[in-house]
Amino acid sequence: MPIIAQPVHPPAGALLAKLHAINSERGYLPEEDLRVAADELALPLSLLYSAATFYSAFSFKPRGLHTVQVCMGTACYIRGGDRLLEKLETKLGVKHGETSEDGVFTIDTVHCLGSCSMSPVIRVDEDTYGRFKINRIPRVLNKYRQNEPGEKGPGEQET
């Protein structure tokens, strides 16, 4: 018998899966949930905190009802993604990483959504909008605001 017990490692990917689960239920990582999770996984709270700040998917701040991700991949960037972001920021009156005052939208940038052939691209929640033209912003936002007529779907057809 070794004098110092060998540590038992948690199952593969357990920490990330736990953080994802809290994040998808709460929209962010509240402190009390992290404390409970640390106990459950038998991991130090400091490790959960490090992971939560290391990975960009997590946030300690409550987020808006909907998340708008503006793709900053190379193809999107050279085809005007930065300008979509700028317009969105002025339209909602907040910078990326922040939530609009009415609590409806959080703006995020993302390094690549992997839809480069459709650049520039934005994603609202799980809906991806490609070949995105700046004048579609109001229609798309309206779609996610309740009781307001918006654009029907992601598609904008080229003829």
Partner: peptide
């Protein structure tokens, strides 16, 4: 995802 982004749904 690319097709969906173009309106395939």
């Amino acid at each position: 995802t690319c097709g969906l982004a173009a309106g395939a749904d």
